[in-house]
């Protein structure tokens, strides 16, 4: 019985081992590069969100815990003189087609939003994917860091708590606004209680 089983399946077992080794070897070779790509993208987006402070702007990565006890990574932006000019964090929420991951930034006083960058999104081409367009994103820049709400009509140039939805993509617009609102709450929680902030911090 065992001999028959082995005779039939030895190739499957041998191939599984060989392909497992192949995938492990490729992953081992490329893992650092893939991680570096993610870090470079995040740093690029951080610089873009705090571009008014120029190339001298530095970012310190810190970890803390939100009120639910989840570990959260956030970034403190500092200008050339070392003054804190803002904070940013990555946050994920449900979109129309898939999860949306945003990098959200606020100023040091936690009063104004600096903007957001889309780190990952699979929203509908031509509609939901307009969350990456400046026309929609710019509404968040300098908007009050309070509770933003989505309207289907309005003036996008007015900087207030109202976000005008993308035509045909209200769910994506609401998803982005919800993620931004939640990110601000998290940043406020983390920066309000510096004593609870974990010691891990590294300059980038």
């Amino acid at each position: 019985m065992v001999a028959r089983f082995l005779k039939q399946t030895w190739l499957v077992m041998a191939a599984s081992l060989a392909f497992g080794l192949l995938v492990a070897a490729v992953d081992g070779q490329l893992r650092d590069r893939i991680k570096q790509n993610a870090i470079e993208k995040r740093n690029r987006e951080l610089r873009s969100l705090f571009q008014e402070f120029g190339q001298e702007c530095r970012f310190a990565e810190q970890t803390g815990q939100d009120k639910q006890g989840n570990d959260v990574t956030y970034f403190t932006a500092m200008d050339a003189r070392g003054r804190i000019v803002g904070y940013a964090t990555e946050h994920v929420g449900g979109g129309f087609a898939d999860k949306i991951r945003l990098l959200v930034a606020v100023d040091a006083a936690l009063e104004q939003i600096k903007g957001y960058a889309v780190m990952k999104s699979n929203e509908t081409p031509g509609f939901g994917d307009k969350i990456t367009n400046a026309e929609f994103r710019d509404q968040f820049v300098q908007a009050p860091a309070g509770k933003l709400k989505v309207e289907t009509r309005g003036d996008r140039a007015v900087k207030d708590e109202t976000i005008v939805a993308i035509t045909g993509a209200t769910i994506s617009s609401e998803a982005v606004t919800k993620i931004v609102n939640e990110s601000i709450v998290i940043i406020k929680e983390l920066t309000a209680e510096p004593a609870e902030t974990a010691a891990s911090e590294k300059a980038m």
Partner: peptide
């Protein structure tokens, strides 16, 4: 993996 590494 190759795409993630070289064409992220």
């Amino acid at each position: 993996l190759l795409l993630q590494a070289f064409l992220p």
